[in-house]
Design a protein around this nucleic acid. Sequence first.
DNA 1: ACAGTCGCCTAAACCGGTTTGCTAAACCGG
DNA 2: CCGGTTTAGCAAACCGGTTTAGGCGACTGT
Lengths: 366, 366
Amino acid sequence: MAHDRSRDPVEQRTQRPRIADVAREAGVSKTAVSFAFNSPDRLAPETAVRIRAVADQLGYTPHPVARMLTQRHTMTIGVLTPQALSVIFSNPFFGAFSEGVAVAAEELGYGLHFISPLQGSLLRAMNRATVDGVVAVGLSGAHPEVEQIRRAGVPIVLVDSTALPEHGSVEIDDVGGAYAAASYIASLGHRDVLVLGVEPPAPGGPDPDGVTSRRLRGYREAFAAVGAVIPDERVIVGPASIEGGIAITDRAWEDGLRFTAVLAMSDAMAIGAMRALRDLRLSIPGDVSVVGFDDIDLAPHVDPPLTTVHQPIRRKGEEAVRALLTVVERRGQAKPEHRRLETRLIVRGSTGPVPKHRREVAGKQD
Amino acid sequence: MAHDRSRDPVEQRTQRPRIADVAREAGVSKTAVSFAFNSPDRLAPETAVRIRAVADQLGYTPHPVARMLTQRHTMTIGVLTPQALSVIFSNPFFGAFSEGVAVAAEELGYGLHFISPLQGSLLRAMNRATVDGVVAVGLSGAHPEVEQIRRAGVPIVLVDSTALPEHGSVEIDDVGGAYAAASYIASLGHRDVLVLGVEPPAPGGPDPDGVTSRRLRGYREAFAAVGAVIPDERVIVGPASIEGGIAITDRAWEDGLRFTAVLAMSDAMAIGAMRALRDLRLSIPGDVSVVGFDDIDLAPHVDPPLTTVHQPIRRKGEEAVRALLTVVERRGQAKPEHRRLETRLIVRGSTGPVPKHRREVAGKQD
DNA sequence: ACAGTCGCCTAAACCGGTTTGCTAAACCGG
DNA sequence: CCGGTTTAGCAAACCGGTTTAGGCGACTGT
């Protein structure tokens, strides 16, 4: 009795029209209406036109969910992050990455769905999401979620994680980039450095081979090459944001750490560090050199322009989507791709030779 | 014959298990399985447990699309923009806005789907998207799309557009904010200003009452109050980005325009303007004062810290979602809400009194 | 005149779940 | 011991489309 709409066109509900309504109105079968939209060539031209006209006039549009159900694909891809979206969106790195994802997705006709933990559970969120595949950023390959997602039959591409052969991946040469940065800093004479690491995405584990570990390895190898070491107490991690950079730089200073160079694993942190140092009346690069990582859009525009390790953030997003879609589009036939992109050091104005009066600002430890 | 999987458990496909598989395996009906997941209280406790165990072991998860179809809602909301996502994501304003949207969406258990024109058509994109409602940002209320979306029965909330009574809206006091900014600038003695407007989202029309027009009105009213005018040739529009700000400031300067203050309608443009001015060897605020609009996270961190009109960007996102969900959750029962948020001027370091030697840098026009 | 082909359209099955009656057995008070 | 109420679970309808397998009349070739 709730379905009067199918009998009484006058007392019709505010609901959207269904395919059956169009069919009845046009005096054809549902099949014909479906054909009119999806394969008009299977209908007499004028019939197709007539059906379309009726549909238009009724304001009919195929229900996307119903269509998905039968077509077995949704034409949308998911972007998965282990962090809350609310903490991610104003991260410039993530913004640029999403831009790359969006470029490729738009080009290939896919929509974008962002997936983040729902009530603390990534799986719950995944199970609600209707996507053909997923680009996961900052999710360690060891993460148990990854396996469960694959079991659910959803293709996945991991970005910035250690690659496992079973799924696609896109990564950059973290070690090489970090090596170049530290090597340059060392060549300027710096020996007392402060390293700002990015907090592991999944708070809880030290993440044995996450981004922070890989870049740290690069820094250390470069210093080792000149016979210097970076002790553990000079490595501090914090949130990859301007505020994070300010906070941990201040804390390091207050803890008595002195240094002539800061190696930050993210540009946002580097910018925060510069801010904090300036507030401490230190000049950059006169007293302290700062080098970042990422080369976000803003990097050349801060004062002084930031020396940093460039990584092709947007391209990373694009490549991830392309890698994903090759496996999505031929349902598991194609084997997962692994793409690795290059990094390179970009020298700008925030780095310079170690100050001659360095003893005054640094080297205070034993 | 393609469905052997239902008869031969050995030669089963790589497909994900369906509810029927679980039912068969557990020796119950589909209904029972459904109950086990959705209303376990309708089953004997031990039966529910057993079904759940079988499901787990099979790796069964209810197909989200099928579930959506019957439940008539998707638990996701769309964020609609008339611009390509690829141009939007690294816009800091949009980032902060999305953050607000994400906060509210996450809190209320909704997912997020970004919708941008597909092959140039917003409608095509909308029709592919499975959302319960839409937050549209920067879409003029007059836009024909809006009406069509409403006709499709999708609730919509407009952000930063002139409000129409039929749908919800969230806006800020653009005129008031702009008035405050210009008023302050005028009180510092500035009379020769350059106004940087944001390019209308829909390139094509001058957008009679878009953001640019509203803020310009505020600027002009403030100047009128002190008996000054802002002539049309001192108002230039461009993309709301750092690069955009640099480009149009340079162009204005080359065109011979001279000014002691810049009124930018976005912080990104203001930062670009500062950059361009510094490259012209002008000091800020010594020679030229700059005031922005938005108060993005970066605003206090540029050098000098940017004086700007603060608007609660994140809250705008949150309010939009809440307004949307009140109508989504009681299917059209609630009438659309209209919320208006305040703006206020934040004075930082980029503004100062008009220079005494102003004749040298400005006032060159007749 | 007749079988074969083609063009146009349809009835019914299907996608993978949820929801709505209903039934049969167990329980219950008197 | 009997009618009435729970309890536990099922079959079938349904959500709104797409797709498969034909049906039917007109055309074609012989």
